[in-house]
Amino acid sequence: MTSLNIAKTLSSVTPIVLTIAGSDSGGGAGIQADIKAISATGGYACSVITALTAQNTQGVSGIYPISSEFVEQQLDAVFSDLNIVAVKIGMLSDVDIINSVAKKIRQYSPQSIVVDPVMVTRNGDLLLQASAIESLKSQLFPLADVITPNLPEAAALLNVAIPQNEAQMMTIVDQLRLLGAKSVLLKGGFLKEDINSTDLLILSDDVQRLSTPRIKTRNTHGTGCSLSSAIASYLAQGHQLTDAVRLAKHYITQALNYADVMTIGQGHGPVNHFFSLNREN
């Protein structure tokens, strides 16, 4: 086979992943983190931006929303041309954008959908109004193969107290199943006192426990964005959900493990998406 034929064969099977999220000017989270994670795990990333943020490793100083009409225009542009297999959905700033994204997802019917419900700041403040949270639950969750809330987000979705340990995580499993997604990855990263970082993959008839040693680093910015994007990337490559989640969990653990190789900013720096390039041969 000639090099040209090889190139054509590879291009025909390129797993294309769309990320729908906000932009992080600091490059650590949001669209920027998504593109890095998708690329590092073997996918081709395209994007639809839902909001612009003035942001760095120390926090967010401003948010500039994108109109729902322009979000739809971006969605039509990428879906009409690219063979998008999987979609990762992150920050959606208001009801109109949530409804627009849901409408276009139903129109174009991509194979796999991962929803990371970005709802709560590091300080515990809600990013979405109650009406937007209800739209997220009614319009997008039923379309999702998996949603990936952390503990504060799960608590906000269910209007319950934030779980403080793994046993309390188990008590909300049945409630999370009722949110309408095919599965839920409940992330336990906020349980800082645990020596392990344990997530629960909640399926319709099973709960799988995914636990790895907790990595001690302050460079954790973009962890959730990167994990959900990696799941979408592995789904686009043909992995079944449970395998895609396990591969993504391994990827983000390594990205955290190598995060201190980099010195980015004065606050919570990003994870090291391309850690394999920093390994010693």
Rank of each mutant, 00 (worst) to 15 (best):
Ser131Leu: 09
Val184Ala: 13
Ile20Gln: 01
Tyr108Glu: 06
Thr212Cys: 05
Arg218Lys: 14
Thr9Gly: 08
Leu82Trp: 15
Asp34Asn: 13
Arg218Ala: 12
Ser211Val: 02
Leu203Gln: 05
Arg246Ser: 02
Leu186Arg: 01
Ile89Tyr: 01
Tyr44Trp: 07
Ala45Asp: 03
Ser11Pro: 00
Thr19His: 09
Gln240Arg: 08
Gly30Val: 02
Asn83Ala: 15
Gly26Glu: 02
Ser135Glu: 09
Ile38Cys: 10
Ile35Trp: 06
Arg177Gly: 00
Leu151Trp: 11
Met119Ala: 04
Ser204Asn: 12
Gly22Lys: 04
Pro149His: 13
Gly26Arg: 04
Ile16Glu: 05
Lys187Met: 10
Pro270Asn: 09
Ala161Phe: 06
Leu235Gln: 02
Val85Lys: 15
Ile231Asp: 04
Pro149Thr: 06
Tyr234Asp: 06
Asp96Met: 10
Val115Leu: 13
Tyr251His: 11
Val71Glu: 07
Asn123Leu: 06
Leu151Thr: 06
Gly180Arg: 13
Asp145Met: 07
Ser138Ala: 15
Phe79Cys: 09
Gly269His: 08
Gln240Glu: 11
Arg279Asn: 02
Phe275Ile: 05
Gln111Ser: 13
Ser228Val: 05
Ala40Phe: 02
Leu92Asp: 03
Ala248Phe: 09
Ile66Asn: 07
Thr171Ala: 11
Val87Lys: 08
Ser229Cys: 07
Arg246Asp: 06
Ser138Thr: 15
Leu201Ser: 03
Glu134Asp: 14
Ser47Leu: 09
Ser183Gly: 08
Ser131Phe: 07
Ala232Leu: 05
Phe141Thr: 06
Leu235Ala: 09
Leu256His: 05
Ser229Arg: 11
Ile215Val: 15
Ser228Pro: 00
Asp145Leu: 04
Asp174Gln: 14
Thr171Pro: 03
Leu185His: 04
Asp24Trp: 12
Ile231Ala: 08
Thr2His: 10
Thr9Ser: 13
Ala7Asp: 15
Ile6Tyr: 11
Ala130Met: 03
Gln254Cys: 07
Glu72Asn: 12
Gly269Gln: 08
Asp116Met: 09
Val173Asn: 01
Leu4Ile: 10
Ala45Lys: 11
Leu179His: 02
Thr253Pro: 02
Arg214Asp: 02
Leu10Ala: 10
Gly180Asn: 03
Leu247Gln: 10
Asp145Val: 01
Asp94Val: 07
Leu256Trp: 12
Ile215Glu: 01
Ala154Thr: 01
Gly90Phe: 01
Ser39Thr: 15
Ala156Phe: 14
Thr220Lys: 14
Gly59Ile: 06
Val78Pro: 03
Gly27Glu: 03
Arg177Asp: 03
Ala230Lys: 09
Leu201Met: 08
Phe190Ile: 06
Ser100Pro: 07
Gly30Thr: 05
Ser39Tyr: 14
Ala77Lys: 13
Tyr234Val: 03
Ile97Pro: 00
Val146Trp: 06
Val95Gly: 03
Met262Gly: 00
Gly26Gln: 00
Val207Ile: 14
Asp206Ser: 06
Ala37Gln: 03
Ile6Ala: 11
Met262Cys: 02
Leu92Tyr: 00
Arg209Lys: 10
Glu69Met: 05
Tyr108Ala: 03
Asn165Tyr: 08
Thr41Asn: 05
Val160Gly: 01
Ile113Pro: 01
Ala255Lys: 13
Gly62Glu: 05
Asn281Asp: 04
Asn165Asp: 13
Lys249Gly: 04
Val261Ile: 15
Ala155Ser: 13
Val207Thr: 12
Asp76Ala: 12
Ala130Asp: 14
Pro152Cys: 11
Ser39Ala: 15
Phe190Ser: 14
Met262Arg: 11
Asn281Met: 07
Ile89Val: 15
Leu191Phe: 07
